[in-house]
């Protein structure tokens, strides 16, 4: 929320937000899709390696986060929209909720896991 205070600009006439500024091209979308597909393939392969514990989980989580960021950033235009004036408001709304959800529920799971 603090972010948006510095970003605040009611005096500037806002523009409609997505007609002029750059969105990815068709080619870029395909590239992202191929990367996503490759990561998914690696994930599946990794899960068949017979690893256990952190060796299994940590790389999978990392790949999951990368996929998440690519979809949110490119397909949902977050990384493009956020370059607009005040575009960071999107981060505020969505990012705050993401962070909140992750933190809160990690604490809950930790409380159950360790019972301390």
């Amino acid at each position: 929320m603090t972010d948006s205070i510095t970003l605040d600009s009611t005096d500037t006439h806002g523009h409609s937000d997505h007609d002029d500024h750059a969105h990815p091209t068709e080619k870029q979308y395909w590239i992202v899709f191929v990367i996503l597909a490759v990561i998914t393939a690696v994930e599946i392969a990794w899960s068949y390696m017979g690893l256990e514990g952190p060796a299994l989980v940590v790389p999978l989580i990392i790949m999951m986060v990368v996929k998440f960021l690519m979809i949110a950033g490119v397909f949902m235009h977050l990384s493009f929209d956020s370059k607009m004036p005040n575009g960071r408001t999107f981060y505020l709304c969505f990012g705050a909720a993401m962070v909140l959800a992750i933190l809160v529920f990690l604490v809950v799971l930790a409380a159950f896991e360790f019972q301390i």
Partner: peptide, 22 residues
């Protein structure tokens, strides 16, 4: 024009998706 220069609908959609995260 809106105060932030973002469309109301889009902002609302992101807010809704934020609450879906929880």
């Amino acid at each position: 024009h809106t105060s932030l220069g973002l469309s109301n609908m889009k902002l609302a959609m992101w807010l809704f998706l934020g609450s879906e995260c929880l």
